[in-house]
Amino acid sequence: MVGYLRVRLTELQTRFSQAIRGAEIAEAEVDALRGVMAEGGVALENRLDVYRNNVLVGCAKAVVGAFPMVESLVGEEFMRAAVDHYVVEHPPTELNLNLYGSSFPEFIGSYPPAAEVDYLADVACLEWAWQEGFYAPDEAVLDISEIATLDPDALANLSLRTGSSIALIRSAHPLDEIVDACRSDQDIGELALSQRGADMLILRQDYRLQMHRLTAPEYTFLAGMMRGASIAAVFDEIVDLGGELGPLMQKFFGLGCFVGYALMVGNPQQEDIS
């Protein structure tokens, strides 16, 4: 008896989910719920539509709120239509709505009506990194003095662990110029954007989020640390790109990018850190 009833609540919740998860109420599912739900006054489909609408509006609000620059680039109406499609095609799989929207950059990158705005997906990536950085856990920052006492020979084997608010975005578009235009409310169509890419760093320092454009050696260094490489493993590439290790490390320690370190064992060229 209990087993039968248990199946019934599960089935009811599945049917309810299916009835309200689309762009419109699913009539077949509503019909399946008749008899289970009371009827009278406002029609059952209209009653269930209140839930469908609440969910859609709640999800859309969360996504629009996370991508203000994308919205300013495409306009409110276009954004609303894109987000409505996104919400129906990619409903939340997490309970925390603040972290809903992680696949929106990919979605907007392949959303046919936005095809001509080729930098949109990269701007969305930047904004998602911003969103994640905003909610990233608080961490104690590693001070440069904590590695100053290490044996100089050991420094080559050092791998610095980056904070959880840190993200790198490598774009073929001048994201820094696009961000400036969005922030100053300029019409992007009237700007002559530079024909270059941009490597962007997002990080949170003292509770405030920041965005920096990095040089190629800076990007190489930080990307290496993020994947757990040792300094020795990225050193040659940094030098080839014209970078100098000392100033690079000073800069990133100054920004509070690191929260820990590991000393790689054995051949430092092998990235065997886990």
């Binding site: 609540l9 839930y51 609440n54 969910v55 409903p91």
Partner: peptide, 23 residues
Amino acid sequence: WSASGNAHFPDLLPLPYTGETLE
């Protein structure tokens, strides 16, 4: 309730008031 399988709804969805729900 607001979750069923992989589907999560940012809303407070209604429950039937039965012994099974109570359980």
